[in-house]
Design a binder for these strands. Structure first.
Length: 494
RNA sequence: GCCGCAUUCGUCUAGUGGCCCAGGACACCACCCUCUCAAGGUGGCGACACGGGUUCGACUCCCGUAUGCGGCACCA
């Protein structure tokens, strides 16, 4: 399927917020390419923005990647021979290449104050020009700038963009993109605090870590030409670049929010990986769906195993246009994956969700209940409210009006329950016997099965919508079933 | 404002000049199955943004317009 050499691919988020689906999709594609080619998936943390750094974000990121099964071979916590894998640990390295750029005349020191920069920006915009820096310090002679720097004056280091001409860059998804150099700014490479900007750090790190494919969000496409100049000035061969389209909100209008919002009905629209996990989305369903947000294999194949996706993934088939996140479709995927699980596996995944909901469930009992709800689940978290009545001896009070089936009256209910009780008392509690007995009982009373079953269901489960009756009664057991029917009958006669 | 990217059913997509009066999936609707709810089955609704070219022939190529998105920070 692939003719690629082993790829070294990195996921390099900046830890400023929780791990969301956009980042997860990028990490997934990185992982796929690395696994497909037998290469390495590397995790690097871009913490050059000290102001927005959030230590909680790193933990959330690692947990999210592990949940999705995107195990990395190298990087944070995994180690490797290209470290450090956190940018603030690489300051000496950046210093070395800054000096090289300065010495070669591809960069210069800038002493402008932020006030002046802001003023220049305003003036340029008012004059109808592109906002940006006016290259004021670009003409300063190196001996002078060195002296000022040595004297302790604060400065940044800027890239010396070629004054004329244009540059053509290649994107694996979009093809060639040409930009005039006049559109480019003399971007800051090193901030006055000595820490590199993203632009500089990413180029140095990717090169030194021998990254072969850079996948990142589309928002970086505009600065790609800048990075390309940097590769040229440093005399390095650039890796393959692929700018992934943004993920749109479900309406397809505008970017998917990086904050979780609620629908008018109060339900949550998750965007963080940890929230999807808490809601009971399966990692395999997320993996499959995420792969399809922007990529497709052919005109009809959608359900694929991890191995199949790894084998079939191709950057050439990544769409250049943005894709809307479709919760309905993800839910559908999740339901399919839940149904594909073995009863044992589903039970094990359900157990923590059920217990978290406050139900004292034991695995053996749950094992018997799972088959009854397996094809009725979209999310693992939905199980609890579907099976709560299986636990505890007595039912919490329910609305007696629920007992009355369509076309019948409340007065019809007691005779039905009495008939059901009589039949249930004498038959064995297995599926076939229950089916035969209850159907016969309905026929004896001249009722449709549905009419006869409703009071029985409500009296034993406490709700109108419940798993199939025969299986439910069998799990509940004769003793509990008869007692609950008696209790309902008693409430009705009060 | 300037620059860049994108534009097929409501949504995700297939389609690389004739196989397409456009195929699949989610959602929606109807019917079937059925003890409720699901699941499953069958069928239906529904799209090439617009205008010019190029060509015997354009969803596919070119130009323009419109719309959306991104960038133009000592944030990533």
């Amino acid at each position: 399927m692939t003719d690629n050499q082993p790829a070294r691919v990195r996921y390099a988020p900046s830890p400023t917020g929780y791990f969301h689906v956009g980042g997860a999709r990028t990490a997934l594609y990185d992982y796929l390419l690395a696994r497909q080619t037998g290469g390495a998936f590397i995790l690097r943390v871009e913490d050059t923005d000290q102001k927005r750094f959030n230590p909680e974000a790193v933990a959330d990121l690692l947990a999210g990647l592990r949940f999705l099964g995107l195990e990395w071979d190298e990087g944070v916590e995994a180690g490797g021979s290209y470290g450090p894998y956190t940018q603030t640990g690489r300051l000496d390295i950046y210093r070395k290449y800054t000096k090289q750029l300065l010495d070669d005349g591809y960069a210069y020191r800038c002493f402008c104050s932020s006030e002046r920069l802001a003023a220049v920006n305003d003036a340029r915009q008012k004059a109808g020009q592109n906002p940006g820096y006016d290259r004021h310090c670009r003409r300063l002679a190196p001996p002078e700038t060195e002296a000022r720097a040595a004297a302790g004056e604060s400065f940044t280091v800027r890239l010396k963009v070629p004054p004329a001409g244009s540059i053509t860059v290649h994107d694996a998804i979009r093809g060639a993109v040409t930009v005039k150099n006049s559109q480019l700014n003399d971007a800051v490479l090193i901030k006055s605090n000595g820490i590199p900007t993203y632009h500089f750090a990413v180029v140095v790190d990717d090169h030194l870590m021998e990254i072969t494919h850079v996948m990142r969000g589309e928002e970086w496409l505009s600065s790609y030409p800048l990075h390309a100049h940097l590769y040229n000035f440093l005399g390095w061969e650039p890796p393959v670049f692929a700018h992934l389209p943004v993920i749109l909100n479900p309406a397809g209008k505008g970017k998917m929010s990086k904050r979780e919002t609620r629908a008018p009905d109060g339900s949550l629209y998750p965007v963080f990986v940890h929230t999807f996990k808490e809601m009971g989305y399966l990692p395999e369903a997320m993996f499959n769906y995420l792969a399809l947000v922007g990529w497709s294999y052919d005109d009809k194949t959608e359900f694929m195993t991890r191995e199949e996706i790894i084998g079939r993934f191709s950057l050439k088939r990544v769409n250049a246009s943005p894709a809307a996140w479709n919760y309905d479709k993800l839910n559908h995927f999740n339901g399919i994956y839940i149904r594909r699980l073995s009863v044992e596996a589903l039970t094990d995944r359900l157990l923590p969700f059920v217990r978290r909901a406050g139900i004292q469930a034991d695995r053996d009992t749950l094992l018997k209940i799972t088959p009854l709800i397996q094809e009725r689940l979209t999310l693992l978290s939905e199980a609890a409210e579907k099976i709560d009545f299986f636990f505890g001896d007595d039912l919490p009070p329910f609305d007696l009006a629920l007992l009355t089936p369509k076309k019948l009256t409340p007065a019809d209910v007691p005779p039905i329950l009495q008939k059901a009780r009589a039949v249930l008392a004498r038959i064995e509690f297995n599926h076939d016997a229950l089916a035969a007995g209850l159907k016969q009982a309905a026929a004896d009373m001249g009722l449709k099965a549905g009419q006869f079953f409703q009071p029985v269901r409500v009296a034993t489960c406490g709700k109108k919508v419940a798993p199939p009756l025969y299986g439910t009664l069998a799990v509940l057991g004769k003793e509990t079933v008869l007692r609950r029917i008696d209790q309902t009958l008693a409430r009705l006669s009060e």
